[in-house]
Design a protein around this nucleic acid. Structure first.
Lengths: 201, 201
DNA sequence: AAGATATTTGAATATACATTCAAGTATTTT
DNA sequence: AAAATACTTGAATGTATATTCAAATATCTT
């Protein structure tokens, strides 16, 4: 039987810091190309500690994905939880995503779609987790369009679910274009048209 | 010095068949998770033959990507090289992509974007090849919009480059949505709106 | 057909990797 | 402060992997 921490003494490391470090490493290298050595270096944890805290490499990966989702959700809530116009909020949201795309950081890509693309075909568990989180993002966006409807910014007969799905599609696409063309001149007009096509009357 | 074939005797294997087999394997597993054993099984070639013909795993991968690009280009030309309306052709093209998305086949994803996502950050050569091929696809689509303009199907002041880029973005997005929602009910309306937003006057 | 040249084969090699575990260190309990 | 308990450490383990290469086989040349 494996040795396991009993969590009686306080945690010796900052779980969120460790998970964000692992998250970045996975984002840069992908899952398969990230070695345990990369992870011990990035997190500062020794192999034994990682195995105690997260079972194995995949366990750490799943925990990192969950942290990613949590961080993203918090960021989303902060941007949308206010009394402003839903359309203004969407504009800011797209501008924020665009900034990320332009940063040319490896962390610009969405860890969920990246993981889905890399492992979705082989690992059902990862696929389900990623799909669930992406679905909940879609639902959050649908709520924003509901708000826009309530604020009479888009027609009452608009289908919030559909508009949200279209926006999700656009953001996926924008992020992929950013891989080949990380320029404002290319991405800004795309984002502008995307928003215009969403709120057109 | 490595032993190398001298290509004096005729090729003992069908290069295209081998490359397509490798292509599929890479599409299903990704580059890192595809082992040489997977490749020998898929191609029917022995390790030595692969190393003679393609230098190493990465050499085979690049050759497979090039074959993918060639196959896609041929398919594209076949669909668009006719006297029909550019908009009708685009409609058929999107319908064809949608069919691929619905097939739930691992090969539905674009090998170029998938490779860019997996390796672009670490391997400059792969990144350049993928970007170049995706760029040439973008140019081909821009030509289609030029044709549409000449056929007076879209306004004369339309920016073909931009419309093509927007379509590229949409197709990237559509393919990613298909990973989580491979249903006609979801994808068809998205594709329909994408086309409508492109040819709107 | 014999000799020369080229290709095919797959076991052997070396390396990189995920995981384990026993020894070492810290904290808590008595 | 001594004993007991819990965590930390990183070298050791076994496995998987990319690549090589010498022997075996096929084709070509004379």
């Amino acid at each position: 039987m494996n040795y396991k921490w009993q969590n009686m003494r306080h945690a010796e490391f900052d779980r969120e810091r460790v998970l964000r470090a692992a998250m970045c490493t996975f984002m840069v290298n992908g899952y398969a190309k990230t070695s345990m050595q990369d992870l011990t270096k990035a997190t500062g944890l020794h192999p034994g500690s990682i195995y105690c805290a997260f079972d194995n490499k995949k366990g750490l990966f799943i925990a990192a994905i969950e942290q990613y989702q949590q961080d993203r959700t918090a960021q989303f809530r902060q941007l949308f939880a206010n009394g402003r116009s839903a359309v203004d909020n969407l504009t800011d949201y797209l501008a924020q995503i665009l900034q990320e795309c332009l940063s040319c950081d490896a962390t610009q890509a969405c860890l969920l779609t990246k993981s889905l693309s890399e492992m979705g075909e082989q690992d059902e568990q990862i696929k389900q987790i990623a799909c669930e989180f992406l679905q909940s993002w879609h639902q959050s966006l649908a709520q924003v369009f509901d708000t826009a409807k309530a604020q009479q910014l888009i027609p009452q007969e608009s289908d919030s679910q559909f508009l949200a799905q279209y926006l999700v599609m656009g953001i996926y696409g924008l992020r992929t274009v950013a891989h080949t063309q990380p320029n404002v001149e290319v991405l800004q007009p795309l984002a502008d048209k995307l928003l215009a096509d969403l709120i057109r009357h």
